[in-house]
């Protein structure tokens, strides 16, 4: 998937797409295995051990099982929307990969509005969740969908503002520029508040615990994907894990110096940092109880957004003074 940054070649695009598809699938399989292992070891148990070395190909077995499952379509669903939702949730996730710089040269399209592209396509996942919830004709699913929309709208704002304070320092939306600007010091040390805010917002944005309200199983059974089975359910699952990869990749690019690091190749450093962030997000999930819905919205509107704004203003002032 490596092409020169600005040349548009058909071959490059196709190779890139195939590469992204492969990456998404392998990443999801790995993350699910990782999540099971991480949760297991936090819960005093070994996790999957039977299929492959320490259960390494357990998720492949599970994926095959899901492929063989019957695709149930309940009678009273809004059929076109119901069928479209799993695809709609998956497409924006793929697009986001186009602009992520995995290393110095490994990037499909180095667009000068890279950040905006990722964030705007990430916003589309809300649409898919709403479609799934509404079309399912199930009260619990609608609940999950409504919660998801309110949550995503509330958390996209502080997310954007925190990223803005970094963009303000760099002066560019281009992801490679942002990484290049960190050649002396990582932004996590310059903007620690922004980093913490970003991690909180990213956890909420990907619907992960303690902010997993759209699919809070003890309240809403399975939330917006209650009525989905087989591969359709698997697509939601895949999208969730890929989303996690994307927010972790953004955190790496914005705060942890992207692919930069000594000795090892850029790609390896990039992946190490991404999976470290993902481990952190998993750690949250297996430690905290779930917040209540109104508390979640309060946290965003009354604490995170003012903090992010203050951080942005302080950054602007400091930049002006220096």
């Amino acid at each position: 998937m490596a092409t020169a940054a600005h040349s548009v070649s058909v071959f490059g695009m196709i190779a890139g797409l195939i590469g992204v598809m492969a990456l998404v699938a392998v990443n999801a399989l790995f993350l699910i295995w990782m999540e099971r292992k991480v949760s297991a070891h936090m819960q005093l148990r070994p996790g999957p051990m039977e299929v492959g070395w320490h259960g390494a190909i357990q998720t492949i077995a599970d994926a095959l099982k899901l492929l063989g499952k019957e695709l149930i379509t309940p009678r009273d669903v809004d059929k076109p929307v119901y069928l479209a939702a799993p695809i709609v949730i998956f497409l924006p996730v793929l697009v986001s990969f186009l602009v992520i710089p995995f290393s110095q040269n490994l990037i499909i399209r180095d667009m000068h509005v890279g950040v905006l592209l990722i964030l705007s396509f990430a916003a589309l996942t809300v649409l898919a969740i709403l479609m799934a919830g509404w079309a399912s004709n199930n009260k619990y699913a609608v609940f999950g969908a409504i919660r998801s929309v309110a949550q995503n709208v509330a958390y996209e704002i502080p997310l954007l503002i925190t990223l803005m304070s970094v963009i303000l320092m760099v002066g560019s939306f281009r992801l490679t520029d942002i990484v290049a600007a960190q050649n002396r010091i990582w932004f996590v040390f310059v903007q620690p508040v922004a980093f913490i805010l970003y991690i909180i917002c990213a956890t909420a944005e990907t619907n992960r615990a303690p902010f997993d309200l759209p699919e809070a199983e003890s309240e809403l059974v399975a939330g917006f994907h209650t009525e989905y089975s087989g591969m359709r359910f698997a697509l939601f699952f895949l999208a969730e894990y890929t989303n996690m990869f994307i927010v972790a990749a953004l955190a790496t690019i914005f705060f942890l110096g992207g692919w930069r690091g000594p000795f090892l190749p850029g790609l390896v450093w990039f992946l190490i940092k991404v999976y470290a962030i993902i481990f952190l997000i998993m750690w949250f999930r297996w430690t905290f109880p779930r917040v209540r819905f109104d508390q979640l919205i309060t946290l965003s509107w009354k604490i995170l957004i003012p903090l992010a704004l203050a951080n942005l203003i302080v950054t602007a002032f400091v930049l002006k003074l220096v």
Binding site: Q43, L44, R45, A209, W286, P289
Partner: peptide, 13 residues
């Protein structure tokens, strides 16, 4: 009860 509140790990402990 903590499972109801969304915390998985204490259950196993």
């Amino acid at each position: 009860y903590l499972l109801d509140l969304g915390a998985f790990t204490p259950f196993l402990y």
